[in-house]
Structures are given as structure tokens and as C-alpha cells.
Simulated scan of single mutants.
Amino acid sequence: MYRPKTTLEQWRILQAVVDFGGYAQAAGALNKSQSSLNHAVSKLQDMLGVQLLEVIGRKAVLTEAGVVMLRRSRDLTQNVQSLELLAHNIHQDWEPEIVLAVDLAYPRDALFPVLEAFLPESRGSRLKIKDTVLTGTDDAILKHQADLAINMNIPRGYLGEALCHVEFVLVCHPQHALAQVNGHIDPSELAQQLQLVIADTSDKPEEKQGWLKSENRWTVSQFDTAIDLLHQNIGFCWLPLHKVKDQIEQGLLTRLLVKGSEFKQMTAFLICPTPDDKGPGTCLLEKLILQHRQIDLPS
């Protein structure tokens, strides 16, 4: 029978050194001495016969082999965590806490009847709803930080159930310079104006979605903050139509038409990061969300 040379703790320490940017920072996060972390990583490399980290200046940097090994090690530690969680759910029967990550763009009105129906059946389970944005929602899925997630895309390797379509529109104050343009606006005109952007909740955000060419950008954490700034004639912003439809109809905000992109539409999906580990509470919440989905399913 094969006996591993390395331990989960060694891999966990390596991950911490990389994630926290060095031995000193990782030592503080793990409540261990810096020397013990150095020893663990050094022993790990000796056992493997592969150099995983190299020190450049004052910073420990992954080697090419280290990048590959670290990625595979994350799968290993997550699988162990999932296995232990599965055992916990089998023992407890009903989860003490259920985490639901929800992208800010998802209409909350669609969630309220779900929560109302879930409450009397929840058996005292705590429900934690995490507001996430862009790759922050991806993180909640990929890092298994949530039992269920509502995301505007399906990360590679996962499955999702479509819940609704979310339309985004470009808006500004009626007196904003962009609102005075007749017809469709050229994208080059947008680039000269202040753009309001919703902050990505990921620890390592990636700007890979949406129109972000404006050099002058302000970042806010909530759609409501962006709307408040728009009311003060500050900037322009892409926002979910359901958040600003009434204000557009009342003339408080103006919808802009842009050459090549009058509007954009995304689909919200319900994703279970660890489907094999679902407890009964998570299964019930998933069922209720799907029952209240706002999309026509193919017959």
C-alpha cells in the first residue's frame, strides 16, 4: 500500500505562504512561528525532490513546478474538506449554517418569496447570504465558500440551472453631457467621461467583463451608491434595468444608447459548488429557488 511522503499540513502551509505573500504574513495568519513554516516548506521540497519556491529579493515566488503542484494541492485540501463536511452533514442530519452567495445583479425581489418559504422549514439552520460581485462570486464557487451560489456565469467544470435574464443598461443624469448627445453615442465619447464601476468582491479581482475603457473611473461597492452619485450628475454607469427602470420612467435618470451596445443581457444561474455534499437544508433551499425561477424552460 502506498504511504504518502507529504502531509496535508505541509501543503496547507505552502498555500498560506503563497496566498498571504510570504512566510511572515502566513505565520501571523496561521498563528505559527516563521521558522516552523520555513522548516515545513523546506522539508516538503526535500521529500518531493522538487523546488517549489525561490526567494527573489525578500519575496518567496513559486517556481514553474511550484505553480503546478500548488494548483493540484488545492484540489487535495478541498477534497479533504468536502469529505469532512460530508461526514459532518451525515452526523448532524441538518446543517447548522447554510451559506448562499448572491451576485448583486440578481433581483432581490425574486429571492424574497424563497426566503419566506424557507424560514418555517429551516429547523433553526442559520442562513448566511453573501453579497458578491463578478469574480467574487466565482471565488465563492471555486473555493467552496458557499453551499449555493447565484452567479452571472457558470465557471468551468461546474453545472448550473438558469434562473432569470438580467438586462444591463447604460444610464446617467438627464443633465449630464452624454445625455445631450443626439442619437447613439460613440464609444470614444464615453472614454472621456467619468465611469462608475461596481467593485469586484474577489480577493484578486479580474477586470474581464463589461466596458471599462474610461481612464477616469470611480469604484463603489453597491449599485445604490452608484445611483446616488448619478443623481448628483456624477458619471455614467452600467446598471441592471430592474434597479433603475422606475427612475428612467420618472425622468430621474436617462438611458444612453451606445454604438455597438444598446444593452447587454446576462443570465443568472444557480450553482451548487459541492453537489455531493449537500445537506437537507441546502437541498430544500435549492428546490425553493428553482421553484421561483423567472425563466421559461424548454418544453
Rank of each mutant, 00 (worst) to 15 (best):
H231V: 04
D276V: 05
I234R: 10
L119K: 11
L163Y: 05
Q250P: 05
E161H: 15
N38F: 15
E286N: 14
T201V: 06
A87L: 13
G279P: 04
I289F: 06
P113C: 08
L170A: 02
K213W: 12
I150S: 09
L270M: 12
P298M: 01
C237Y: 01
K5E: 11
V220E: 03
Q25T: 01
A179M: 05
R74G: 00
F269V: 09
S42W: 15
Q175C: 09
L239F: 01
L70R: 10
G279W: 02
E215A: 13
D19K: 10
H39S: 08
L48A: 12
P107E: 09
H91K: 13
R108W: 02
E167M: 08
A226P: 07
Y106I: 01
K32Y: 11
A199I: 02
I198N: 04
A191F: 03
A65L: 07
Q175A: 09
L104H: 01
I141A: 07
T132Y: 11
N31I: 13
S122K: 06
K43H: 13
L284Y: 04
P273S: 06
N38H: 13
C272H: 05
K128D: 07
D277C: 13
I234V: 12
L253N: 02
K208C: 11
P275I: 00
I295Q: 05
G251Y: 07
L100G: 00
I234N: 05
Q180M: 08
L85C: 00
L76A: 08
L52I: 14
Q265M: 10
V133S: 00
T77F: 05
F236V: 10
K59P: 03
D186K: 08
R293K: 15
N233C: 06
M69I: 13
S42A: 12
V99W: 13
T132W: 11
V50F: 04
V181T: 12
I198V: 14
L86R: 05
D296L: 15
L290E: 11
G49Y: 04
Q81S: 13
